[in-house]
Design a protein around this nucleic acid. Structure first.
Length: 483
DNA sequence: AAAAAAC
């Protein structure tokens, strides 16, 4: 029997917010996780994308915090009692909004801190006193080091998208953050994907955890129709146009593997008449938030993005996801296509696989335990390919039709060009630098060292390679090219 | 083969 939120006997202020949200029946992950979190147990929770994981931890957490209000401190001060960590800034914003909504009738304050934006307003917010802090790792460390955030009274830590937070790129920051927290605390990990290694690593962060798996982890939502088409790189745009048209798709995520590819594709599609915006990590944070907002409001139809948008983003009724490139990690496939088919809605996921992507497709097949047929892409006849080539006067022409492209001035207005972006796309070859001749020294703060060493011991050899070794590899590469 | 996360 599925149970409703009303049987939960949530505190009245929370029940009111839940009702306002329109929630009635709990999703399976909510049904299973909420009672366990209310008991104060550590949790490792896996559930498919789009099934309400945020509410599954936020509601019971707020409920407990209301019950044990100011248990450990004087009422005059508001120390951070719950910390929620996320792997991208946009996700931090989204989760913070949700937490704020659930807590709106309680006395609990919440705030969000993330990089790419001015420190000052965040600092001011923190000084007011915040019980629930939502954050991305780097900026949180900044605030900790600036003594804007004191975390020694944290009772709850949530790692959302936990497998990402524990991966090699985030682990050092995460370790440092955890080293500032009391050892006695409740830790909650949530994700749609958990590899066996990550599960093992995760258990070293948890005390006697309850594992909740409402579906096999790594499972895709059954409401998403998935297709793989065999398409060469040059035909992908044509294929995209055709499928959008044939299936009458109004809005879609279009995932690309690199930031440069993302910026280029967005520009091409815009020029080809599609309402498009790009979201990737080389844009300013302001532009990132604006791009996402425009897509949410339906002002643009296509969000061309990197994996910055692969996880967690909850946008209602997006009917389709395109993998313009097959993702390098099979897990990212699960997360990417999880942007559609949310909350029981139906969705379409279309991936373009070049022949060189065969291995990646096999990886995905293994992960989701589903046979993938790569279908041939059949193009409608007499649709001339409009490939553009440079001609002498610098103007462009369409190769196959011979038709000349409009002058820049006549063309549709482009997005404002960013000089910064261009610089980063054309890095100069690295010069030999005396720095690299010195042995690498850890830049970790001394107080973080023990935690770091502990992590190195407890993780697999692959994970322990992280921050210390990488620079050495670079050194080796430099010597090779120099020799 | 890349992206993300701090200045």
């Amino acid at each position: 029997m599925t149970s409703s939120f009303s049987n939960l006997s949530l505190a009245e202020p929370l029940a009111r917010a839940v009702a306002e949200m329109g929630y009635e029946t709990m999703t399976p992950i909510q049904e299973q996780a909420i009672p366990v979190v209310l008991q104060g147990r550590d949790v490792m929770g896996a559930a498919q994308t789009g099934t309400g994981k945020t509410a599954a931890f936020a509601l019971p957490l707020l409920q407990r915090m209301m019950k044990h209000e100011n248990a450990s401190t004087s009422p005059a001060r508001h120390p951070v009692r719950a910390l929620v960590l996320l792997p991208t800034r946009e996700l931090a914003v989204q989760v913070a909004e949700q937490v704020k909504f659930y807590a709106k009738y309680t006395n609990l304050n919440s705030a969000v801190v993330f990089g790419g934006m001015d420190m000052k307003p965040q600092t001011a917010e923190l000084k007011k006193g915040v019980e629930v802090l939502v954050a991305t790792p780097g900026r949180l460390l900044d605030h900790i080091e600036a003594k804007n955030a004191v975390l020694n009274q944290v009772e709850y830590v949530v790692l959302d998208e936990a497998d990402r937070m524990l991966d090699i790129g985030f682990l050092p920051d995460l370790q440092r953050i955890l080293s500032y927290l009391p050892k006695q605390r409740i830790t909650l990990l949530f994700s749609a994907t958990f590899s066996p290694e990550i599960k093992r690593l995760a258990s070293s962060f948890l005390q006697d955890p309850v594992t909740i798996e409402v579906a096999r982890s790594n499972a895709t939502a059954s409401t998403v129709e998935q297709h793989f088409y065999s398409v060469g790189a040059d035909d992908k745009r044509r294929a995209l146009h055709q499928i959008l048209k044939a299936r009458g798709i109004k809005q879609a995520f279009v995932f690309v593997n690199s930031k440069l590819g993302c910026a280029r594709l967005a520009r091409s599609l815009e020029r080809e008449g599609l309402k498009t915006t790009a979201l990737h990590g080389d844009k300013s944070q302001d532009e990132r938030l604006k791009a996402l907002d425009a897509f949410k409001k339906g002002e643009v139809d296509l969000l061309v993005c990197t994996d910055v948008a692969a996880r967690g983003l909850d946008i209602k009724d997006v009917p389709a996801v395109f993998n313009f490139d097959v993702p390098f990690n099979a897990e990212d496939y699960v997360h990417r296509i999880g942007r559609t088919g949310r909350a029981g809605a139906s969705g379409l996921a279309v991936s373009f696989a070049a022949s060189s992507d065969q291995r990646l497709v096999t990886d995905i097949e293994k992960l989701i335990k589903t046979k993938i047929e790569i279908e041939p892409m059949e193009f409608e006849e007499d649709q001339p390919r409009k490939e553009q080539g440079r001609i002498n006067d610098g103007r462009r022409m369409y190769r196959e039709t011979g038709e000349q492209a409009p002058r820049e001035a006549d063309a549709a207005p482009r997005e404002r060009r960013e000089p910064r972006e261009r610089r980063e796309y054309a890095p100069r070859p690295a010069a030999r630098d005396p720095f690299f001749d010195k042995p690498y020294e850890s830049t970790l703060a001394p107080e973080a060292q023990p935690a770091w060493e502990e992590a190195a011991k407890s993780t697999s050899s692959r994970s322990s390679v992280s921050a210390n070794i990488k620079p050495k590899k670079k050194v080796a590469a430099l010597f090779k090219t120099a020799a």
